[in-house]
C-alpha cells in the first residue's frame, strides 16, 4: 500500500524540519522528489542524503515570477508533477495591538498567496494527465486560533478554505486537494521553547508528548497515494489529541 513509484513530487519548505521529513518519506515510497526552499545549501545536503530521484529548485514564495519558474523547472526536471506539497511557511508573531502591516502582509503573502500561486501553476499539467495530489500543510492554529499569531492563523485558516474550493473545482479531473494540520511538532522551531513553555503546551496534549516530523510525513504519504483517491477537501489533524475537530 501507498506505493509512490513512478510519481513525481514537489515539496516546498523542504529545508525545514517537517518539509525534510515529508520529502524523505515520499522518496522512501518510491517517488521522484524536487526539493524547494530558500536555503539552497540545506536543500543540496538533503539531496545528497536521499541520492537518486532527487532534484533541487530553490525559490522564494513571496515572488510571483519565482513561483512560476519553480513550477516550470520542477516539471522540466521530473517530466511531470503529480504530487504538490505546499509546506513552505513563515511566522512573524506579535500580539495584534502591536502587529505591523508588514508582519501581517508577509505571512499572508508567503503562506497563503504563494501557495495559491504555486498550486495554480501546477494545475494545468495535473488536469491534462487527469491525476494530481495537492497537499497543503496548514496548522492546528488555523482552526483553533492562537494569541500572538493572528496573521499565521488567518493564513492557515485561509489554506483550509482555499483547499475546499479547489477540491470542488478539480475533483472531476482526478485531482484531490487536502490539508494536513500538525499540532505541536518537535522541530528546530519548537527547540527554542523553554522547558516551562513546553510543559504548558504538553498540558494541552493528551498524548503527553510533542509529535515528530515523521508522523506528519506519514499523513502526507497517505493523502498522496492512489489509495486516497476518494479523499478530497479534507483536513487531517495530527496533533496527539490536542484538538478534536
Amino acid at each position: 500500500m501507498f506505493d509512490l513509484s513512478g510519481k513525481a513530487a514537489l515539496v516546498t519548505g523542504a529545508s525545514g524540519g517537517i518539509g525534510g521529513a515529508i520529502a524523505r518519506a515520499l522518496h522512501g515510497q518510491g517517488a521522484t522528489v524536487t526539493l524547494s526552499g530558500t536555503r539552497a545549501e540545506a536543500l543540496e545536503q538533503l539531496k545528497a542524503s536521499l541520492g537518486e530521484r532527487t532534484h533541487v529548485v530553490a525559490a522564494r514564495m513571496d515572488d510571483a515570477a519565482d513561483i512560476d519558474r519553480l513550477a516550470k523547472e520542477a516539471e522540466a526536471a521530473m517530466g511531470k508533477l503529480d504530487i504538490l506539497v505546499n509546506n513552505a511557511g513563515i511566522t512573524r508573531d506579535n500580539i495584534s495591538m502591536r502587529m505591523k502591516d508588514e508582519e501581517w502582509d508577509k505571512v499572508l503573502q508567503v503562506n497563503l498567496t504563494g501557495t495559491f500561486r504555486l498550486t495554480r501553476a501546477a494545475m494545468r499539467g495535473m488536469m491534462k494527465r487527469r491525476f494530481g495530489r495537492v497537499i497543503n500543510i496548514t496548522s492546528i492554529v488555523g482552526v483553533t486560533g492562537n494569541p500572538g499569531q493572528a496573521n499565521y492563523a488567518a493564513a492557515k485558516a485561509g489554506l483550509i478554505g482555499m483547499s475546499k474550493s479547489l477540491a470542488q473545482e478539480l475533483a472531476s479531473r482526478g485531482i484531490t486537494v487536502n490539508c494536513v494540520a500538525p499540532g505541536f511538532i518537535a522541530t528546530p522551531m519548537t527547540d527554542g521553547l523553554t522547558d516551562d513553555q513546553k510543559k504548558g503546551i504538553l498540558g494541552r496534549v493528551p498524548a503527553d508528548r510533542l509529535g515528530t516530523p515523521d508522523e506528519i510525513a506519514a499523513g502526507v504519504v497517505y493523502l498522496a497515494s492512489d489509495e486516497a483517491a476518494y479523499v478530497t477537501g479534507q483536513t487531517l489533524h495530527i496533533n496527539g489529541g490536542m484538538a478534536m475537530i
Binding site: M127, L170, R173
Partner: peptide, 9 residues
Amino acid sequence: SLDTVELVM
C-alpha cells in the same frame, strides 16, 4: 467552466 479551460489548453 473547467471544460472551457481545457478546450483552450
